[in-house]
Amino acid sequence: MRFLSSSIGKKIVVALTGLVLVGFVFGHMIGHLLMFAGPAAYNEYAHFLHTVGHGMGIWVARSVVFGSIIVHVLFTIQLTKQNRAARAEPYGYQHTQVASKSSRVMIISGLTLLSFFIYHILHFTVRVWHGFNQLPLFDLAGEKVFDAYQMMIKGFSFPLVTGFYILSMVFLCSHLSHGVASIPQTLGLNTEASGKLFKKLGLAFAFLILAGFSVVPLAINMGLVK
């Protein structure tokens, strides 16, 4: 389609998929924070995710997120290639006036997040390490369900894993600090005033996400959540 082959069309798709992922990240973070509400609350939440819509809900959500990630990544790789080609010869004297560091490493932070995402899926969704699938089942009001709470505790009991996880969240924060504020601009919603507001909101959101995702593994490592 002609729209998708244009620079702006691609950008708009990147912004829209970005918006989906921002929503996912936010919801996922809220879910993580349920760790502080205890095993019952957390496992109930996990069980709900797996059973909603007769177990279809999670697959719909997963498809949307996976699809968004794939499109987001493929399009940004294409755009980045075009951008590199557009400036064939670099300047002898490099200078940046206003572009933030984060905005200049979007492709690096993004690809790092992609690799983190794959690791994260293998770790907690496919559960290829640590024998998570052998964990004793949890008694949720009489129903035996998978003990996601214990999985989190075990998963984050390795400082190295926690370190990599938090580092990835720093990249996510960086990625969001530019990405979130860019969405309204790319979608054509920005005015002079809203542009400034969105910049602040984007930054605030990025740090909120960093804090929200870091606090759980840190608490587990410090023994505050058992």
Binding site: S7, A85, A86, V98, A99, Q185
Partner: peptide, 8 residues
């Protein structure tokens, strides 16, 4: 190239 909203 494409716009990456850096406003240089």
């Amino acid at each position: 190239g494409n716009c990456t909203n850096q406003y240089e």
